[in-house]
Design a protein around this nucleic acid. Structure first.
Lengths: 256, 256
DNA sequence: CCGAATTATGCACGATTATGCACGATTGAG
DNA sequence: CTCAATCGTGCATAATCGTGCATAATTCGG
């Protein structure tokens, strides 16, 4: 019995949906291929956002928990802080800054220069909370029902409120960044909101952590070329940076 | 059946969310791994901010932990927690609850029963943040410019948004509570906002810490008699309670 | 049909990760 | 204070991973 590669991918991903997890060694035995091949398959699937790669196999991603701001906030803290330090260089004194729901933006909220007369706008309660605790900047909250999985207000009410602001600079968290697919998000409404706020902002900066590089989420936000700048970490592979530049992006690499 | 390391982490963390605590020895027996491994798992989870490591296991950390203010502003953490436990008895399943900016309300945000289908409305970013971190209730944010000293949106935009909601219960933080002066606040706009939200709510509950008893702030919110109930601590002087009752308040004393 | 380019696969190798055990230190209850 | 439970660390072992490379299969343009 011969099995086509694509057929195998389908089988793995449906098994994943079905049982919630797959074990690399089991699949290899069951499908009569080497574990190397299975590992490559799982790597592909996780890059396409179908599953989460873990030691020994892969898990169906919970669609919610893994993507929430709170869970991501504690991960790769130093990398995000480095991205944030680079990002805040774009902020002028007295500027009006928009931050959407993203763990990197939480880091930016902390990294913004102190007593700089900044006005911050956000639709994410956690970001708003961090900003108000600083006590040195005005905070404007875009209200409405907070989407549980995204951790921010992204519905009609927030969209309406977004039309009444014009930030000087907009920091957009990306769920995925790919040369072809551009900046992408896990939720349709989230993608719409990001697009809307970017359109009313003078400039748009997208900080992208390495794990998000070359992965595409289901919903498109914008082209890489439409960002004023894309910030990447120091350890981002050079070929990824090259691909982004070819797609028209102004890529800025962080200092180590 | 083999269990993937990542899968085990997910299981522990969801168990933590459900029951509020886990015991290392139990997990080890149940999952068929050594306690060392469980200890390492719990260490990882706590490093990622998912839980708090304690002797023998781990605890779900209260959502307000992220907002440092709870510890800083509130010396009387336990007293507020006691008030909060009393306050949440007023909340029915599926209720719509309003919480304004107050440290006692932050405690209430933690104390609300889990998985109760509650919808929470708030104009305070810190409260909204704590609520979204719980992950088990819908959160509606009233937006607008956040007043730095009050820590909540209390301007025209928030007032407008407040007119479009009708909470079942409104928990009002009091800056002062006095038999003659009633419930009072430090800021004029804050007082106006509290009055407005109370008027659209079915019932209004005012939890009052002992330090606020018999003190009056400059701006009046409402009469004590207009609150559905006033909650006071166990150590509140009896003469104060008597004076409140004489003024028409339905005073409920906390259990010790 | 044929050769070149692309893709898929397996294998070897060193690197990384996960796990259990031993040992001494620490904690908390009585 | 005493003692048992729990914890942290170092170490050994095994499983898993990533990468480079060689080989087979497939695709594609004449």
């Amino acid at each position: 019995m011969t099995m086509l590669p694509g057929e195998r991918l389908d089988l793995i991903s449906s098994r994943l949906q079905d049982t919630g997890k797959v074990i690399a060694a089991d699949l290899a035995r069951e499908l009569g291929v080497s574990e190397d091949t299975i590992r490559r398959d799982l790597r592909d699937l996780s890059a396409r956002g179908v599953c989460e790669r873990v030691y020994g196999g892969a898990l169906r991603l919970p669609a919610s928990a893994a993507t929430t701001l709170s869970k991501r906030a504690g991960q790769s803290v130093e990398a995000k802080a480095a991205l944030a330090r680079e990002a805040v260089k774009w902020v002028d004194e007295g500027a009006c800054v928009f931050l959407d729901a993203a763990s990197t933006n939480l880091a930016i909220a902390d990294a913004l220069p102190r007593d700089f007369g900044i006005t911050c706008i956000t639709n994410a309660p956690q970001i708003a909370s961090a900003l108000t605790l600083r006590g040195d900047c005005d905070v404007v909250v875009l209200g409405g029902l907070v989407n549980r999985t995204v951790g921010a207000a992204i519905g009609a009410e927030a969209m309406q409120a977004a039309r009444n602001v014009r930030p000087d600079i907009c920091f957009l968290g990306a769920c995925g960044a790919d040369a072809q697919a551009g900046i992408t998000a896990f939720h349709a409404e989230d993608a719409s909101f990001k697009r809307a706020i970017s359109e009313v902002s003078a400039i748009t900066i997208a900080p992208v952590t390495t794990e998000k590089i070359m992965t595409a989420a289901p919903f498109k936000v914008m082209e890489l070329a439409d960002c004023t700048a894309v910030l990447v970490e120091a350890d981002t592979p050079e070929n990824a940076v090259a691909a982004f530049r070819k797609a028209g992006a102004d890529v800025r690499r962080c200092a180590q």
